[in-house]
Nucleic acid binder design. Structure first.
Lengths: 207, 207
DNA sequence: CTCTATTATTAAACACGTTTAACCAACAAA
DNA sequence: TTTGTTGGTTAAACGTGTTTAATAATAGAG
């Protein structure tokens, strides 16, 4: 690796470390690009050269922690014998617990990334796609064991359950009064509804 | 009403009309507060005095149209004899059709409002609460007719179904290639899953 | 009517994300 | 080594949302 390339990587790392430090310490809205540049010992323009904009910097600075949390959540998931509901809730518990460490920070991260036009957030988009795929495969497995109806579309089920998880997460990040347990309780019932349905079984409909 | 109050209301209206015009014409990100102020014939500072910030102006400028669309959707909803699924999808079709008129505009509106801290977006928050309440009552009605299980929590069902609607809407606003019909198709299956569940009926579980 | 208090309005300034244009060290070719 | 080029870095400037401090018009009290 040439001299130029190594020093470039070094500055990139300096900026990333400074960003992580200040984002966590002061929150992403109270620390400016100039602050981060000063902390890293580079010029503000350099930050933009390396990361395109503040949101992209936020994304790169934080996605690894999220990835590790997902990995840990999946690794500690109850085994196949356990109920689908229990396994899903385990992952949700891990994630909500993680976000609870710095709600303000992750609220801003998710706000600034989820609504951008497609293609703007490569890291988090990839994470989501991988997770949805893993999750769809999980449901397919359950199908083979007869725990999920053969007719149910696994991809739509995965994305629907994720929608429920995500909506509760949004509310969780917006409302300081909402404890993780309250959020999990709400999600638990929503997931149960999606798994078992809310209408009576066939043939029992009407009066 | 005193002279001062009337002129204040007049400027407020001037700003609102200018904002609606420019937001629709150029999109909310390409038209500046200065543009709006110039169009309205007032100073930029005046805009902020009346509306606190650009997002609040966007919210006030647009929420009435949304409200009317909801009202029309509810008014034209199939009668109680129709299926719950059909009634929900009717509302979704009306709303997606409305948002389809200016996706970019509503994408920015929803992005800038949904993730703010609670209490920041009074108009849209009230709309959502009213709608969820109406929707919960609808599900309670279905319960009484035996079309929904007595044990199902109507509030959680309402909010879950809204989550599904909202997630598909997000994807719809983010992805120009996604047609309203594709979005509705996706949502239709997700709603069907939530209504009927994806696990086999009781007693049929396991192998 | 006069004087004071209130308040809608605004010009100017500010803060911050981002862009531009110039600089210069590293590299490649001769 | 010399020369020309590439590319990482940055000082300065820009655009825009927002704040501040001053202005002027109105309302109310005497």
């Amino acid at each position: 690796m040439s001299r130029r390339e190594t020093t470039k990587l070094e500055t990139r790392q300096l900026i990333l470390e400074a960003a992580r430090k200040l984002f966590h310490r002061r929150g992403p809205e109270l620390c400016t690009m100039r602050d981060i540049a000063r902390e890293a010992g580079v010029s503000p323009a350099s930050v933009v050269v390396h990361f395109k904009n503040k949101t992209a910097l936020l994304e790169v600075a934080l996605y690894e922690d999220i990835e590790q949390t997902i990995a840990k959540a999946v690794a500690t998931m109850p085994q196949a014998g356990a109920s689908l509901h229990g396994r899903l809730m385990h992952i949700a518990r891990c994630m909500y617990g993680f976000y609870d460490n710095d709600r303000e920070l992750y609220r801003v991260l998710i706000r600034d990334t989820t609504f951008e036009k497609a293609g703007e957030n490569p890291y988090l988009t990839r994470q989501l796609q991988e997770y949805l795929q893993f999750f769809g495969a999980l449901i397919e497995q359950e199908k083979e064991r007869g725990k999920v109806r053969p007719g149910a579309d696994a991809r739509i089920a995965a994305s629907s359950l994720f929608s429920l998880y995500f909506s509760v997460l949004m509310e969780f990040l917006r409302s300081p009064d909402l404890t993780p347990d309250m959020a999990l309780g709400w999600l638990s019932e929503a997931v149960r509804q999606h798994l078992t349905g809310i209408v009576p079984p066939e043939g029992d409909k009407g009066k």
